[in-house]
């Protein structure tokens, strides 16, 4: 192993820190660029529209309550016909609200754009960026 002088190792450390700082700055710039996309604006507006639609909010809450009440049966796959019908009814009611449909469509569009950016990053760095973005990322690069 080659021993570096204090000056050399300090310099390398400084370069490393500078590069990591540049990466974090570039990451912030990417986040800003994503915020400026039409898809994000659409998502933001759809979210605002959904948040003031009281009827849609009630339908969402009813569906979520039902799922929470039946979470064990759902997890075990032991829903009976009535329970399944009730969940489907509530889900159908919920999805019938244009504000929610728009929000879900906007969300899907924005998520696809984010996944495309992650794919582009993966192509450049040779590591699965999407799979390793979270602490404890599960997949190899």
């Amino acid at each position: 192993m080659t021993l570096l002088s204090v000056d050399q190792s300090s310099e390398l450390g400084a370069v490393s820190r500078a590069t990591e700082t540049e990466v974090l700055l570039a990451a912030g710039t990417l986040g800003t660029a994503l915020r400026e996309t039409p898809a994000f604006v659409r998502l933001h507006e759809a979210g605002a529209g959904l948040s003031v639609d009281d009827a849609a909010q009630e339908a969402i809450e009813a569906f979520n309550r039902c799922r929470a009440d039946l979470q064990i049966e759902i997890r075990l796959g032991t829903l009976d016909a009535d329970q399944r019908a009730e969940i489907e009814r509530l889900q159908s009611t919920m999805l019938g609200f244009p504000t929610l449909a728009e929000y879900l469509a906007a969300q899907a569009e924005f998520e696809e754009i984010c996944r495309e950016t992650a794919g582009l990053v993966t192509g450049e760095i040779g590591i699965d960026f999407a799979a390793n973005c979270r602490a404890g990322g599960c997949c190899g690069g």
Binding site: T19, E20, E22, V23, A26, A27, T29, L30, T32, A33, L34, E36, T37, I113, T117, L120, V121, G123, E124, I125
Partner: peptide, 15 residues
């Protein structure tokens, strides 16, 4: 967005 992503990725590659 494409350019911002590439700029980020190329910087990240040098981390």
């Amino acid at each position: 967005l494409h350019q911002a992503t590439l700029d980020f990725a190329r910087t990240l590659r040098h981390a």
